[in-house]
Simulated scan of single mutants.
Amino acid sequence: MARTRALLTERDRELLAEEDGGNRRYQAISEIRSRITEEMETDIEILRENHPQLLKELREIVCEDKSG
């Protein structure tokens, strides 16, 4: 089965991993930021209205403390 992306594309992941990715890296960061601030907000609202359990699962993953 083909993998789908969550927030980052495979190329986003590659660019973020590069220490000196230049302009392409900064462009990817800008696009990711837009997805977080614009698209994610819409998706969360849709989940809240239509499938609260999926929203709960998303929150558990995103808000999980992995520091310890």
Rank of each mutant, 00 (worst) to 15 (best):
residue 14 E to H: 06
residue 42 T to V: 15
residue 50 N to R: 08
residue 8 L to N: 10
residue 10 E to C: 04
residue 31 E to I: 01
residue 6 A to L: 09
residue 40 M to H: 06
residue 16 L to E: 02
residue 43 D to A: 07
residue 3 R to Y: 07
residue 19 E to K: 08
residue 57 E to R: 14
residue 55 L to F: 03
residue 22 G to D: 05
residue 23 N to H: 06
residue 12 D to I: 00
residue 40 M to E: 03
residue 46 I to V: 15
residue 35 R to E: 01
residue 27 Q to C: 02
residue 35 R to F: 02
residue 10 E to F: 00
residue 51 H to C: 12
residue 47 L to E: 04
residue 48 R to A: 11
residue 55 L to A: 00
residue 51 H to G: 07
residue 22 G to C: 02
residue 20 D to W: 00
residue 8 L to S: 05
residue 48 R to D: 06
residue 58 L to P: 06
residue 44 I to D: 08
residue 32 I to W: 00
residue 10 E to W: 02
residue 67 S to I: 04
residue 23 N to T: 15
residue 43 D to F: 03
residue 50 N to E: 14
residue 43 D to Y: 10
residue 52 P to A: 10
residue 13 R to C: 10
residue 38 E to R: 09
residue 29 I to P: 02
residue 36 I to C: 07
residue 14 E to C: 00
residue 42 T to R: 15
residue 51 H to A: 08
residue 44 I to K: 11
residue 62 V to P: 10
residue 35 R to C: 01
residue 22 G to I: 03
residue 59 R to V: 06
residue 2 A to E: 14
residue 8 L to I: 02
residue 29 I to V: 10
residue 26 Y to L: 12
residue 46 I to R: 13
residue 12 D to K: 04
residue 18 E to Q: 09
residue 53 Q to L: 10
residue 28 A to L: 00
residue 18 E to C: 04
residue 6 A to Y: 11
residue 41 E to C: 07
residue 45 E to R: 09
residue 17 A to V: 08
residue 36 I to N: 07
residue 43 D to I: 08
residue 33 R to W: 03
residue 57 E to L: 12
residue 61 I to W: 08
residue 28 A to Y: 00
residue 53 Q to V: 08
residue 66 K to F: 04
residue 63 C to L: 13
residue 9 T to N: 03
residue 27 Q to I: 11
residue 28 A to E: 00
residue 35 R to N: 04
residue 32 I to F: 01
residue 31 E to T: 05
residue 67 S to G: 05
residue 2 A to P: 13
residue 9 T to L: 00
residue 51 H to V: 03
residue 41 E to R: 15
residue 56 K to C: 07
residue 44 I to Y: 13
residue 33 R to H: 11
residue 19 E to F: 01
residue 22 G to S: 03
residue 68 G to Q: 07
residue 63 C to S: 14
residue 27 Q to P: 00
residue 58 L to K: 01
residue 67 S to K: 14
residue 64 E to T: 10
residue 66 K to Y: 09
residue 35 R to K: 05
residue 34 S to Q: 13
residue 47 L to C: 02
residue 43 D to N: 15
residue 32 I to S: 01
residue 58 L to G: 01
residue 26 Y to S: 12
residue 43 D to S: 12
residue 40 M to L: 14
residue 21 G to A: 01
residue 38 E to P: 01
residue 63 C to T: 12
residue 38 E to L: 10
residue 67 S to N: 10
residue 31 E to Q: 09
residue 30 S to C: 05
residue 8 L to A: 04
